[in-house]
Design a protein around this nucleic acid. Structure first.
Length: 788
DNA sequence: CTAGGGTTAG
């Protein structure tokens, strides 16, 4: 019975079985298992019948071929095992001892040095992940002069796969004749590790070129964001008459997108269609979706997706990004839910987009949903969600993610580490950030910049500068970090000093640099320095930039040169809400309240939407111009536009009302303030009470101020002055005593002069200037002379 | 023994 069934099956398999075989996702496994039994049986038979000697050349050849075939079958079994499900792994795993005994017999029979057998031994051991035996087999190969170029190629690639570039390189350098395959392997490995210079050297050394060789170089340049070099390699490839294939097209589309060469990209797409790569390759179609998306043609991207016969996760993820890029994050979420399968990249895309658009809370929420969906976060996910935690200042959440990244071994990745450093610093945990930094096995320049920026964020400019000086290398971002750090911490003199150091170091400043430098100039009212900075922006050809233009206009206004400020403003090719706000504020601060209000009306007329800062500038104008009615009008208008007033808006309103003597209204508004902690408003009211001699409200204001202004020196000073001006000397003295008791000190005055590009600052509370002794002496001399 | 290069996110 059994025999009958067996003999029938190979002749005419049942239709169901054929269908199953055809649809199997692992045809290799089937192929390897089916023919293995017969040759093995005959081999065992030979072993059992005496030592297999090879007396005639014909017999030798036949025996070597048998060995090679058997080893190939062993290797195929090993590869099939590593890809197959665990259940089916047991029948193939016993092939390793077989391979070992084959090896022994091959040695004894003298066929081990046969090129084919030697190569098979090498690949078999590699397939069974036996590195030691593999290396010995290769060593034997070389010793017996049986090492084919293939054996060398294979070993180079094995070292690269193990991450041992040094060994790969050593082997490559010692190769008798280097093949284009090993050149390809080396160039690719070096490019993937960012060692572009070495890769380029090999690229130029390689005497010939294949599609894979050129494509690997193109891909390497793209990976290292050297898109124009990639385009150059493509031109070289064409001039060498090497025809691109689908993989080349994919890499070139990426290169063109990176270089912004959309015209070239489209002609390459034309080439792909002509060569029929487009129809046959899902990857080419996927990269086309992204190409159209980056060109800003979402409809075309959508069309490519819709017309695809077969779509995979990548296609769906690309579509998801088509939605998120156009700002439709809800649509992107719908795509995510509709996808037949999702992976961590799909989730990561959505998380990153939410994080970029400032919706950090949603990013964190999506992250937990991703985990619930069973996706393991990768480097990018960690990086995005940690940035989200940083902006939420969510230390607990951030630390939890830190723990997971530790468990997954991703925490030492530079991207994740930088995000971690940033997150801990934003949560005011500089110590933890420093620990992460110190324990990093390899740091890049971004890690240094992150920590410098973190210290600046926490106002620790001494630490920031210490670190900045210790940096092994500095780039534009490093200089921007330290300069903006000083500017944000209002150490404007230091900001300008660093700017000068930057210029001296030969680093060319960028837009961000100038926005900090101009901010410093504006705050120091240093028109000369500001003008020099302006000249530099013209020289660099960036004065037309919206950021630079705004900063310049602001700098001129703050320095009192309204003429230049206005000229900058009106010359700008385009203006945004920040630009308008800066000009409105500039006019207000220089006392042109009416003009400021008129400019605001112009802004509204152009259809620009004002923000809370715009209204603050406007209310400031009203307050300084004493325009009470307008202030009330704009205060209402602001709320009508859906902008809720913040403390500073209330302060302005209280100020304008109080200055006009409408003290009761001011007090009433202040009582309505959602945040009761604004001491400055009470101080403004108190100050006005002083002017209008309203002791009744003054008492209440003083009481509130006293409660709130535990650390507000201005409040104490005002209160004390108020009592003094009313003749209530005892109260005034009491406040002064109170100030001393709470270790509060009135902020000292500070002034500075610029002499030959150097800033010299003078402080009222201590003699900090190194030459203060000499300066004082000369001052005494001058005073004595003038008194004569 | 026929290798070596690839698609989405950051």
């Amino acid at each position: 019975m059994r025999a009958a069934v067996r003999t029938k099956r190979p002749r005419r398999p049942p239709p169901a079985a054929t269908a199953q075989l055809a649809s199997s996702s692992r045809p290799k496994l089937e192929k390897a298992q089916v023919p293995l039994t017969l040759p093995l049986k005959s081999f065992k038979f030979r072993l059992a019948n005496g030592p297999p000697l090879a007396p005639t050349p014909k017999a030798f050849k036949s025996y070597a071929e048998t060995c090679a075939t058997l080893l190939r079958l062993c290797r195929a079994a090993a590869t099939a095992t590593s890809h197959a499900a665990p259940a089916s792994s047991s029948p193939s795993s016993d092939r390793l001892p077989l391979a070992l005994s084959l090896h022994a017999h091959a040695v004894r029979s003298g066929v081990a040095a046969d090129r084919s057998v030697a190569s098979h031994l090498l690949t078999t051991y590699a397939a069974f992940a036996r590195a030691a035996e593999r290396d010995r087999a290769f060593g034997d190969c070389v010793a017996a002069d049986a090492a084919s170029p293939f054996a060398y190629d294979f070993m180079v690639s094995e070292h690269v796969k193990a991450g041992d570039i040094a060994s790969a390189r050593r082997l490559f350098d010692g190769m008798p004749d280097r093949t284009v395959v090993s050149y390809t392997t080396m160039v690719d490995a070096l490019m993937k590790r960012g060692r572009v210079a070495e890769a380029v050297e090999l690229y130029e050394q390689c005497p010939s070129g294949s599609v894979a060789f050129f494509t690997a170089t193109i891909s390497g340049f793209v990976r290292n964001e050297l898109h124009h070099n990639a385009l150059g390699v493509f031109r070289k490839m064409l001039s060498c008459r090497v025809r691109p294939n689908g993989i080349t097209i994919v890499c070139m589309i990426k290169a063109c997108v990176g270089a912004g060469e959309f015209g070239l990209a489209l002609s390459i797409v034309g080439l792909a269609i002509k060569s029929n790569f487009f129809e046959s390759s899902i990857e080419v179609q996927n990269s086309l979706i992204t190409l159209y998306l980056r060109m800003g043609d979402a409809a075309a991207a959508r069309k490519v997706f819709d017309e695809m016969d077969v779509k995979d996760v990548v296609s769906w993820t690309a579509l998801l990004d088509v939605y998120s890029e156009s700002g439709d994050l809800d649509g992107a979420r719908r795509v995510l839910d509709a996808m037949p399968e999702r992976n961590e990249v799909s989730w990561g895309t959505l998380i990153a987009r939410h994080e970029q658009r400032g919706n950090a809370a949603e990013a964190v929420k999506l992250y937990s949903q991703m985990l619930a969906d069973g996706c393991r976060p990768n480097i990018s996910c960690f990086s995005s969600v940690l940035s989200a935690c940083a902006s939420l200042e969510d230390l607990r959440g951030g630390a939890r993610i830190h723990a997971r990244s530790l468990k997954m071994g991703s925490s030492t990745n530079v991207f994740v580490s930088c995000s971690l450093i940033d997150m801990y610093c934003k949560c005011n945990k500089c110590g933890d950030a420093q620990t992460i930094f110190d324990t990093l096995p390899q740091k890049n320049i971004v890690c240094w910049n992150s920590l410098v920026s973190g210290y600046s964020y926490n106002g620790k400019m001494v630490e920031a500068m210490y670190l900045f000086k210790k940096m092994p290398a500095r780039n534009l971002a490093s200089w921007n970090t330290i300069i903006s750090g000083y500017a944000q911490n209002r150490q404007f003199v230091d900001a300008l000093k660093s700017f000068n150091a930057m210029l001296a170091s030969g680093q060319v400043p960028g837009e961000i640099t100038f926005s900090s430098v101009l901010l410093a100039c504006a705050n120091l009212c240093s028109l000369v320095t500001g003008k020099m900075a302006h000249a530099k922006t013209i020289k660099l050809g960036i004065e037309e930039s919206i950021f630079i233009g705004t900063a310049l206009s602001d700098m001129y206004a703050k320095s009192g040169d309204l003429q230049s400020s206005k000229r900058m403003f009106y010359q700008m090719p385009e203006r945004n809400d920040v630009t308008w706000t800066a000009m409105i504020q500039g006019l207000a601060e220089n006392g042109f309240a009416e003009e400021s209000i008129l400019l605001f009306e112009d802004m509204m007329a152009t259809g620009m939407t004002p923000n809370e800062h715009t209204f603050l500038a406007l209310l400031f104008a009203c307050s300084h111009g004493g325009l009470v009615e307008q202030a009330i009008h704009y205060f209402d208008k602001m709320q009508a536009l859906g902008i809720s007033p913040k403390e500073k808006h209330y302060t302005c309103m209280v100020d304008v009302l109080a200055r006009a003597g409408r003290l009761a209204e001011a007090e009433a508004l202040l009582m309505k303030t959602p945040s009761k902690s604004e001491a400055n408003s009470w101080a403004a009211l108190l100050s006005a009470c002083n002017t209008y001699r309203n002791e009744e409200i003054a008492e209440r204001a003083a009481k509130r101020l006293h409660e709130l202004a535990k650390d507000n020196t201005a409040g104490y000073v005002l209160l004390s002055n108020m009592y003094a001006s009313c003749g209530r000397w005892k109260d005034a003295a009491r406040i002064r005593v109170l100030m001393k008791g709470t270790t509060l000190k009135k902020d000292g005055g500070c002034s500075w002069v610029q002499v030959r590009g150097q800033y010299h600052a003078f402080f009222s509370w201590e003699a900090k200037h190194p030459l203060s002794m000499e300066i004082d002496e000369i001052l005494d001399l001058l005073m004595w002379e003038s008194s004569l």
